[in-house]
Amino acid sequence: MRALGLGPGDGVAMVANAGMYAATAAVAAGCTPVYCDINPGTLLMDPDSLATLSGETVRAVVVTHLYGLLADMPAILNVARSRGWAVIEDCAQAHGAQRDGKRAGSWGDLAAFSFYPTKNLGACGDGGAVVGADKTLMDRARSLRQYGWRGKYYAVEPGGRNSRLDELQAAILLAKLPALDQQNARRRAIASYYRGVPHSGLVFQDDEGEAHVHHLCVLRSNHREAFQAHLASHGVASDIHYPCPDHRQPVWNGRFNGVRLPVTERVCQEVVTIPCHPWMDDGEVEQVADAIRAWSP
């Protein structure tokens, strides 16, 4: 956001079901989160809801490819470009996802990746990267990640910090990168198998082929607590990503009480994450599938 020249008084459009990470970055940059609703099938930013936001306050959009599903970038870009808004892709969960031959991170003005150890491409510690095609923006981002320097010991860009990727983590990532596509294929195969299992009252996130790398396998249930208890009784772990929508987080002290996001608010009460990763063996996958088959709301 700082590389794009955003700051106080600038609104950044985003969704409210993605863990508050984009909002945290916006506040750190002095910007204001502006929330739009999500599509109930993809659980991602709804371009129609984005189009209803005021162009007078918004200057940029953060598009989160949540759970590994690449958002409808053509539609979102159509809205953003018509308003003159910059577009930032949040690719933290979408390493390797592609749509129409374009990978996550290659659509917007800038994109951010996380290399936290649990990600599809993860290091052995914290790390991340910013990517983009515009040389001016990338030069500014490189400067900001190292004190705002434009030459050694010469700080030019305000808002700089020490945020370099450790070389050891980079070496680990380079060693793991060649396996990414194969591991993503395994994730897709597991999620596809789950979808094909007879189930009652469960709704999976939309599957869109190579556009989804299934960082998380998420479904919805109107009886979430009972479903999680059922899974636990079958020895299957589960989690909720994410239980509290951004605009209802206590940290805001009611700042967004007037914001209404009906789809987001309903989905946050229903989502459940079930095991799905490339290191699961077939027996473990079948154990999860058996629990899905046995569920009755």
Rank of each mutant, 00 (worst) to 15 (best):
N257W: 03
A75K: 14
G30M: 09
G7E: 07
L173H: 14
V213I: 06
V218M: 09
I274S: 04
D48T: 14
H95E: 10
G84C: 03
P275N: 07
V58I: 10
A111D: 10
N184S: 10
G283R: 15
P262H: 10
L231G: 06
Q93F: 05
M1D: 02
Y153D: 13
E270N: 06
V62R: 07
A155T: 06
H234T: 07
E286A: 12
W295P: 11
R293E: 15
H241W: 08
A229R: 12
A23C: 03
E167D: 09
R224P: 09
S233C: 05
C31I: 04
A92Y: 00
R187T: 12
Y21M: 08
S238G: 11
P74M: 10
A191P: 05
R186I: 15
A294C: 06
P178H: 03
Q205S: 10
T64C: 08
A141M: 07
D207N: 14
D72R: 14
A237W: 02
N222A: 14
L53R: 13
P243Y: 01
V61C: 03
G101T: 04
G196V: 05
L121I: 14
G105F: 12
E265Y: 07
R293P: 12
T57F: 00
K119G: 06
E210V: 15
I76P: 02
A185R: 03
A86D: 02
Y194F: 15
A13G: 04
D181N: 01
Q183T: 11
Q146A: 02
P47E: 07
S221D: 14
D37C: 03
P117D: 00
G84P: 02
